[in-house]
Write a protein that binds this DNA or RNA. Structure first.
Lengths: 335, 335
DNA sequence: GGAAAACTCGGAAACGTTTCCGTATAGACT
DNA sequence: AGTCTATACGGAAACGTTTCCGAGTTTTCC
């Protein structure tokens, strides 16, 4: 039903090659002919069929964005960064959200294919050996955002340093009993690389000569409600912590809720530090570790575009800073 | 570089038609042959090239999701609803975020095409006559989410009723001076259909015999910061309002910030009502009008799938309820 | 004026599928 | 044994592009 390039050629009285030339500026066309072709295109409201184009060119002009933890506001921020670049480009974006292992498998099996997409942008996932094998075999450009792999381009965020900063801040305020609420360390997707924040936490404690108390570490699936639950558990301990550092702002907001539930004042009775600096951290006056979320999305696509442009270039690594943003949920302990 | 169906056929010692049959179960194949084909597929790690398939079938197995106000958490919620359904289907999703008029034009000109996508899911945009013409001409299924058009399927949210509820609640508490902070009424994208909430606001006032005071109505682009600014303006009026109803929770959070800036207590000195009930409204204890955001995304795709399945079915209209959620930012006025 | 160069342009081939027409083989029935 | 039916399968054609070879026309230059 939609017009094809043949219809345009016929109406303009030229060959299909000429129409294609006009469309892509791929070879010189006389002014006169160009005008006729453009008129025909206009009249027929012709837009080239992308499948035909893709098939012929072997390029899809599409990138896949694969996202885990799609419930997190931080992922949304990153995605927004990506979209802001995409809108200016002539690329399309295919979105894949993965929440479960079967989904992860399906996506990694089917998506990283030449002929399917031109490149992959992967958020917060640590590729396995198997993934890497496939990527190599398909020679498909990949950029990890908030991920690390020595053989793949990535936007790297120094989680260990960020966590250390946060905990050092608490220690500096005089806290000795600092708990940590995290995602599962042996995470399904990231194969343990989110241990980094935990390690930063431990390092800071040890550097200050403080013990790492296992009962002060809780793990749970990434929701605010879980943050609240875990905080309640911590605060009901015989010897409760005076400060809680959280893997994400999402968790931290849950902790603030828990404090409210227990009529604890923040920061007088309890200090809370989050991670990410999502939009609403500012609103909640939350002390947190800022990641450049939007920016990481922007740089991620840009890196990917470069890699698509120039597939043989060496991998690139961009490190974005993390910085502690001190707001009003941290203070010296009262007791 | 990737294996094609011809490679598979050759390796398995069969014809390409047979391979295709195995892939799509499109005609009976003997057990023996099927086994050989599957083995070859396995060995070559073959996955059909989507462009070829699309071109041949005239179906893309892709839907476009077009989103405005992509900064809003509410849109993210909707998108999450969409993704949850998509993940279970064998459809891909192409995401388009539009923030400006040129972007809007480009997207509406190029995306609603047979051969490009099988269907469109459009968030919070009111299609123009021109859009409709194109959609009709291309005979492409469309579902509007948070939109209304008599000739297109849509998930409808009764904004007028929602706004009325909110304002009636404030009036019920005894407020007489109720301001409204909104998006631009003559909005670029929605051609005035977001007037509905404004009309609900006016209706409620008039029903209670209260005047609609123009100085109590502010319009601005959709960000929390703008909400804050507009609230400051309102609160510095010679005769400031005692309650502010907001077009979105985003705005409302800005209003709360403004109140904090001015050392006003909420709800004692100022009542605030939002709209959407995004995740963080609960955290902020915000009284708001709940929309079933996630659900609207879910139902939107489902409607779209139905329409793709059965293109000649009459358009469908689903109305999702809005409900007032009273939390702690509203109370009777003190003065 | 004629050869060479420059400029235009037409359309077959190729991209990787699915579809479908047609053929081959095996089994059933008379 | 011969005919018919059912079953299994091969491969050409078609989908809508881009690419590129080759041909036609005009211009340039000696």
């Amino acid at each position: 039903m939609p017009a094809t390039i043949h219809d345009v050629a016929k109406l303009a009285g030229v060959g299909i090659g000429t129409v294609s030339s006009v469309l892509n500026n791929s070879r010189p066309v006389s002014e006169e002919t160009r005008r006729k072709v453009l008129e025909a295109i206009e009249k027929l409201d012709f837009v080239p069929n992308p499948s035909g184009r893709r098939l012929s060119m072997g390029k899809t002009h599409t990138i896949a964005v694969i996202i885990t933890y799609f419930t997190l506001a931080s992922q949304f921020e990153r995605l927004r960064g990506v979209m802001s670049v995409i809108a200016e480009s002539d690329y399309d974006i295919n979105l894949f959200a993965i929440e479960t292992i079967p989904q992860r498998n399906k996506v990694f099996q089917t998506v990283p294919r030449r002929g399917r997409v031109d490149g992959l942008l992967i958020f917060s996932i640590h590729p396995t050996k198997e993934d890497l094998r496939r990527i190599r075999q398909q020679k498909i450009p990949v950029v990890l955002v908030e991920g690390y792999h020595p053989e793949l381009s990535h936007i790297f965020l120094d989680d260990m340093a960020g966590a250390r900063q946060a905990v050092e801040h608490l220690i500096g305020l005089g806290h000795q009993k600092i708990a940590y609420i995290s995602d599962y360390l042996d995470d399904l997707f990231s194969s343990g690389f989110n241990r980094n924040r935990y390690m930063g936490y431990c390092q800071a404690l040890e550097a200050a000569g403080l013990p790492v108390r296992p009962e002060y570490h809780r793990q749970g699936w990434h929701t605010r409600e879980n943050g609240r639950q875990m905080a309640l558990e911590l605060l009901n301990l015989p010897d409760p912590p005076t400060a809680i550092f959280c893997f994400s702002d999402e968790f931290a907001l849950g902790v603030l809720e828990a404090a409210r539930d227990m009529n604890l004042r923040v920061p007088e009775d309890l200090s809370v530090v989050g991670y990410d600096d999502i939009e609403l951290a500012r609103f909640a006056q939350l002390t947190t570790v800022r990641q450049h979320l939007f920016e990481s999305g922007v740089q991620g696509v840009e890196l990917l575009f470069e890699a698509i442009e120039n597939p043989d270039a060496p991998i690139k690594e961009i490190q974005l800073p993390t910085e502690l943003v001190v707001r009003q949920t941290t203070a010296p302990p009262c007791r």
